[in-house]
Amino acid sequence: MNFLVLVKQVPDTEKVKIDPISGTMVREGLDVTMNPLDSHALELAVSLKEKLNGSVTVLSMGPMNTIDVLRDAIALGADRAILLSDSALAGSDTWATSLALAKAIEKLNIAFDLMICGEKSTDGETGQVGIELATLLDLPVVSYVSELIDLTENFVVVKRSVEDAHEVWKAPLPACLCVLKSVAEPRLPTLAGKKTAMDAKIEIYDTESIGINREEVGLKGSPTRVVKVFNTKIARNCRIYADKDILEGIERVVGLIKAVRDGEVG
């Protein structure tokens, strides 16, 4: 059984700094790490591979420092790591990213039974690339997968978590799963894994080697444009109840709650 896991590099920080003039993120001096949600997807693939044999390939698109993230994937049990990196790809939106990844998968003839993506990235938070890519590859998709129930040679059975219910779906292989955190708890890399990763070869391709026109991707090939970035202004006039006023504050909240609960206010 062969698995393909899509991973994205994100800044390894909790608190992003914003340049007050340009309104863009200060990336200088920031390390990159694997998008935390993708590490759950990778763990699912690696643990299934360990049970069923086969291989796990990780694929990413990003700047050259993404190599570090792919090495981490190897340390965590991936067998093959592919990076799509090219200045022409910079600024790609979700459509252009999906197109480039689809071309890479076709051109490099990456064989897989199951493609697994994290629900979304912690920086962009769009959650679109997995589904757009699967659509371009004409794969059946199950999104919001919370648990893998069964995987055989021909099909996969998963639990899907939606607003009002848990559903169980069966999809034929090859298929694409967009998974939630709960599918698997990522392991920590071991010393042996880290050593393997140090010597591992990361395959790197550019637009030319996957046969894609530079105009089709990157900023030029992206249907969407960011036209304005601005700071959010949040300010309310807070009435503070502290010290001896605390009980008065509690009474006020009780009054408000009663009014809303019993439907008296507007």
Binding site: W95, T126, Q128, E132, S143, C178, P223, T224
Partner: peptide, 23 residues
């Protein structure tokens, strides 16, 4: 932007080769 919209819309955007803004 429910599980419905967030699954169907990307697939539609890919099919029509157009942009999609989430959330």
């Amino acid at each position: 932007a429910t599980t419905f919209g967030r699954t169907l819309m990307p697939a539609l955007a890919a099919s029509f080769r157009t942009g999609l803004t989430a959330d």
